[in-house]
Structure formats: structure tokens, C-alpha cells
Design a protein around this nucleic acid. Structure first.
Lengths: 269, 269
DNA sequence: CGCCAGGTTGAGGGACCTCAAGAGACGTGG
DNA sequence: CCACGTCTCTTGAGGTCCCTCAACCTGGCG
């Protein structure tokens, strides 16, 4: 188990004003945060951080790297639930005494900052804003999950791929706007995409080829290139507010849809 | 719009010690809760509570009835996200200033207790346990969503139907145990099941027939009958802790799975 | 009584899966 | 440095699960 740890001050952390920690302000509170968390640890690529079913798992703050949480069915089928990027936090959705219903793995070399449950409770006591912010983070994650559910349940394979890659581009860039020809590193394999999208790796491969041939996007050697932002966003068919949510803005969503009865009528047209 | 309202004291509410309100204890706090919420309202079956995209939506506490939240794609495809039963609460996943990314509809006659955002903030200030409990509720809902994602992404149509109906039986019964021949009312139509499970109503129909013919369960006239609990639970293939979560127990989960690499190997066998 | 949403069944098609085989990429150890 | 194994990527052929379309029946409600 190659795990490197090092010590650095919370006040000089590059995520000082992002994610959960941004709720901790003021020298006294930051000191408390620092006393409560453990030194950041380096995790190599493709390793398990914790397994589904394990207990007493702490919170993990993603300082750098990409990870994913997943759930296994008894026969080994795997569903990827979330992708975690720097600034995201894992473990908030778990109640103390429960076993984890899901596992966590790294997609590439990652650095995680650990906060034990005990310490987290202590932090909340001395800094109530943390509890409130944790709620907001959970609420945001929930809305991301809703979108994923719509993807899994109601989108075609091409739409699924477009949606997910678009989400990851936006989330990883955090508010840089999309431009044709932009290229960025994405530590995703086709089996990973498949398990996230409810498809097989083989079909993901065919869809990616199709998207490449139609000059929408290209994914090779873990490098994603956007060729046609307009086609891509049209394909994804996302509600208006989604992009802002990904970038961390909580500006208003302009989504305006009719009732589900109207939707049934629409499907009939 | 036929909406009936009435007034009754929080202290005599049949959900006094369930759901979010159970976090409010002590006469002073209960008085605050009561001052903050609005009179309970009756909503007829099949009506919209709020539309996707609407803003300034309060919290809704489900006193009685069944509801579902859903998300529409631009072309009218619908994904049902959650079923809400008495004791559940809607709106926690929404941040104040944002438009709702999803809508809410009644499945049958329902009574909802409304708590405006403003009042909720006030309640949290005078009763910090509410914030903590809201976090727990969000966390529990998240884990339910994870299971739904695994269902949508990785289970077959028959497994999906079995999973969902099993979940709803357990959640609606709250800790009554399953027995062969038990029968209970479930205000679900096949189109609703379809939109929850990522299938078509026609296919849901065929699956239900199959389950009926195999004497696993029967769903007719909104009445569900369990014929073979063992076959049913086997079909659903749920992790061990799930049942407890549905019934509201937070006993420990005994799920113990191998790493995702092992899962890949399993799939190869 | 008539309407309409929901339920039921059949025929046919398409999206996605399974199986199979080979090539490329990458890390590991000799 | 190369050899090797493993994982990933790629493509083809064939099959299946689920969808689409269409028709008819049923039951609840005004």
C-alpha cells in the first residue's frame, strides 16, 4: 500500500475557499479545522479508498485527483454513482453507525484529506456554519443525482455519453466556458464510462466512435477534445440551470416545464 | 383547484414523533414549529403540487397520501425520482434561491403540511437539532437514490419491478414484516411504474403478468398482493441493510462486498 | 351513457448486449 | 532494455431484451 502523507496548514490550502472548508472562516475556526483533520494522503491511481460495506469510514476531502463511488450488486454488476473532483467531499451521505452502502476508488493519482467522524462532530459544534454548508452540499449532490437518474432511465446511449462528458468537462473546468477544439485530460476508461451510464464498454466504444465520426467530440488516451460545443449541448438536452450548478454558481435556474400530463401529450405528438 | 385546509395542533399530530418533526422536542420548540408552519392542506389525487422550474417553493411534510417527484426532459420524457410517503418531506434538496429542477405530484388524495423557507430558517435557529436531522434525512434519501441508480443502470426489468414494489411495501408498512398472501393498497399505475423504472408501460405490464404467472406477486386495481416473499426478495437482490433503511431503523448494515476488481473477475466467471 | 385513462395482447423492429478475437497501451520484473 | 501479462480499445456477428405501433378491452367518472 503506497500511501504518502504530508502536513501542510489549512490556511495555505489551495482549497481554502472551496468545498466544505469554505464554511470555516476566522482564525479560531480554521485552527479547529486543522486540529481535527488528519494529514493529507496520496493515493495511487486505481486503488480502493474504502469498500462497500466497510464501517467507521471518515469524511474525505478531495484535494486533487478524480475518484468515483460505486455500488455492487450481489452478482458483481457495478453501478457508478458519482464522480468526485477536487473540492468534492465523500462520506457526508453516511450516517455514523452505518456500514457504507457504496465504495470509493481513485481514477488517477489523488490526494485526500481525511476528517474523522468524531472530529467532524467537534468541528460542527465550534463552527455551526459547517453543518449548514454540509446540508447545501448534500442538496447540490442530490440534484446532480436526479440528473443522473434521468440519464440512466430516460436517455439514449448517445445522449448519456454526451451528458456525462459534458458534466465532467464543466465540473472539472469550474466555470471556464466551452470552446470548440478545447482539450482536457479525463482519466476515464470505457469500462468506467459504461458502469456510470448503465451500458457495456463495447457499446460505449461504438457510441464514442460515432461521436468522433460526427465530429462532436473525441476521447482518446484519456484526453477529451470538444469539436462542436453546439451539437454537444443539443445532444445532451440539459435543463438550463444545470451548467451553473456544475460550476458551483447557485444562480437561479430558468427551467420552466409543463405538468406531467402535458408531457404525456407531448410524447404523443 | 379543490384544496381543503384545516388547523390542528402540532402536539397532537399523528406524525409528532416521525420524520423531520421528531427533531423538534420540548414545548417551546413545538410552539415555534406550529407558529412557523401553515395549516395542513388536502390535495386531490393526480394533481401537481409544484412544477419543475417553479421558484420560492416551501417545504412539504407529507401527513398522509402518496406523491412522487419527477424530472422532465425537453422532449417530454419523464423520469420519476422519488416516491414520497407519510413522514417524508419534500423540498429539503432545494437551495433557497434556485428554481426547482423537479416537480411534485400526488398519486392519491394527500394531506400536506407546508413550511415556508423563511419559517424553516427561523425554526432551525431556535431548534438546532432540526438542521442536524434534516442532514440525516438528506443522507438517508441519498442512499435510497443510490439504490435506485443501481436499479436503473444495472438491473433487468423484472428485477426493477421487484425492487421497487418491495421497497414500497416495506416503506409503506414501516417495519411490519413480509408475509405470503399479505395485500395492501398501492396507488400506482403502470405508466407511473414505467417512468420510475426507466421502462415503457407496456413492458411493465408484461413483467407484471410474468410475476403473476410465476406466483411471485400480483398487482391489480391498485392492490398489491405478495405471493412468495422469498422469491421476491431473491429477485430483488438487495444489499442486507436496505430493508432497515426503508423501515427507518438505522441499525448497522452488514453489506460486505469485494473490490470492484473482484467484481470484474466475478463477471467473467 | 359516453368518455378517457389505464390495462392487455400481438407483431415487428431496434437499441443494446453477448461472445469472440485481435491489436494497442501500460506497468512490472527480469 | 526487452519480455511479458494485463487491461483497454476495437471490430464483427448474432442474439435478446425492451420498445414502437396498433388494436381492443376494462373500469371509473362526469
Amino acid at each position: 500500500m503506497t500511501v504518502v502523507t504530508w502536513q501542510a496548514g489549512c490556511s495555505s490550502c489551495h482549497l481554502r475557499d472551496f468545498g466544505l472548508c469554505q464554511a470555516v472562516q476566522g482564525p479560531q475556526e480554521i485552527a479547529c479545522l486543522q486540529s481535527v483533520r488528519q494529514p493529507a494522503r496520496f493515493h495511487p491511481s486505481g486503488r480502493t479508498v474504502f469498500l462497500q460495506g466497510s464501517r467507521g469510514i471518515p469524511l474525505y476531502n478531495v484535494l486533487s485527483g478524480w475518484l468515483f463511488s460505486y455500488q455492487l450488486l450481489p452478482d458483481g454488476r457495478r453501478q457508478i454513482l458519482q464522480f468526485l473532483l477536487p473540492g468534492d467531499i465523500a462520506g457526508l451521505e453516511c450516517e455514523d453507525s452505518m456500514g457504507m452502502t457504496h465504495g470509493l476508488e481513485t481514477l488517477c493519482e489523488s490526494v485526500l484529506c481525511t476528517i474523522p467522524r468524531e472530529g467532524f462532530r467537534h468541528l460542527i459544534d465550534s463552527c455551526p456554519a459547517v453543518a449548514e454548508h454540509a446540508r447545501k452540499i448534500l442538496a447540490r449532490d442530490m440534484i446532480l443525482l436526479f440528473e443522473h437518474m434521468a440519464t440512466l432511465g430516460r436517455r439514449t446511449a448517445r445522449e448519456r455519453v454526451a451528458c456525462l462528458l459534458l458534466e465532467l468537462v464543466v465540473r472539472s473546468g469550474r466555470s471556464t466556458c466551452l470552446t470548440n477544439g478545447m482539450s482536457l485530460r479525463m482519466p476515464l476508461t470505457q469500462p468506467i464510462l459504461a458502469d456510470a451510464l448503465g451500458l457495456t464498454a463495447i457499446h460505449v466504444n461504438r457510441v464514442l466512435r460515432e461521436l468522433r465520426e460526427q465530429r462532436v467530440m473525441e476521447l482518446a488516451h484519456k484526453q477529451l477534445t470538444i469539436l462542436d460545443t453546439e451539437k454537444l449541448t443539443r445532444l445532451a438536452g440539459l435543463p438550463d440551470g444545470m451548467m451553473d450548478l456544475w460550476t458551483g454558481q447557485s444562480t437561479a435556474s430558468g427551467v420552466s416545464r409543463t405538468s406531467s400530463q402535458a408531457a404525456v401529450q407531448m410524447r404523443r405528438l
